[in-house]
Amino acid sequence: MKTLINAWPFWAVLSAVFAALTAVFAKVGVGSINSDMATFIRTLVILAVAGLILAVFREWQPVGSISGRTWMFLVLSGLATGASWLCYFRALKLGEAARVAPVDKLSVVMVAVFSVLFLGERLSLPNWLGVGLIATGAALVAVR
């Protein structure tokens, strides 16, 4: 079990499970309120849970120990996350969760492209085939 907990696939699968639950719960939750308010409430919950985890596991780090470059990229990541959540909740408010979530997962395709272009990562032909299938699948699910 210790090996499983330290393996990235374990956490990636859990992420996918929680992302799926996020779509279902959010679709119900956003039904009777403004999508931006729903995003705000969700953000407060995440902030509280992340703070609790840091406190329980005593993982707080001195702010001064974090480099300027790290701060810059984490702030950019936070801005991108916030924009993504606002757009996602707006899409859920307006559309069906079963169609919105797969289009949102086109981020997988974009991560593949961006990681090759900006991070110098390399993908094999089978990897690119998978990326293409994800894009095709998202498009097929989104079509009415």
Rank of each mutant, 00 (worst) to 15 (best):
G130N: 04
N6Y: 14
L52A: 11
P126K: 08
T43V: 06
A97Q: 11
A20Y: 11
A80W: 12
A50F: 15
A38T: 04
L52Q: 03
W71R: 03
W85N: 08
C87I: 09
A135W: 12
L140E: 00
S107Q: 12
G31S: 11
S65K: 07
S77D: 02
V113E: 03
I41D: 01
W60D: 06
G120F: 07
F25S: 10
A112D: 08
S84N: 11
A23L: 00
L92G: 00
L14D: 01
G64A: 14
L129W: 11
F40R: 03
F57I: 01
G132P: 14
F25I: 09
R122I: 13
I134G: 01
L74S: 10
T70N: 05
L47W: 09
R90W: 05
A23K: 06
G64N: 12
A50L: 15
F89H: 05
F73H: 05
A16R: 01
A48Q: 04
E121I: 13
A7K: 09
F10Q: 03
A20T: 07
I46G: 06
A12H: 02
L125T: 12
I134P: 02
L125D: 01
A50S: 12
F114R: 09
K105Q: 14
G132D: 10
A23H: 06
T3P: 10
T22M: 10
E96C: 04
V131M: 09
L94M: 13
K105V: 07
Y88T: 03
V100T: 08
L117M: 15
Y88N: 06
M37P: 00
S124R: 06
F89N: 07
L76T: 10
G78H: 08
P9D: 03
L47K: 02
E59H: 01
A50Q: 05
L129Y: 05
T81F: 10
T3Y: 12
A38V: 03
F25V: 09
T81P: 00
A138F: 11
S84L: 14
W71M: 02
V28T: 09
R90Q: 10
R42I: 07
G64R: 14
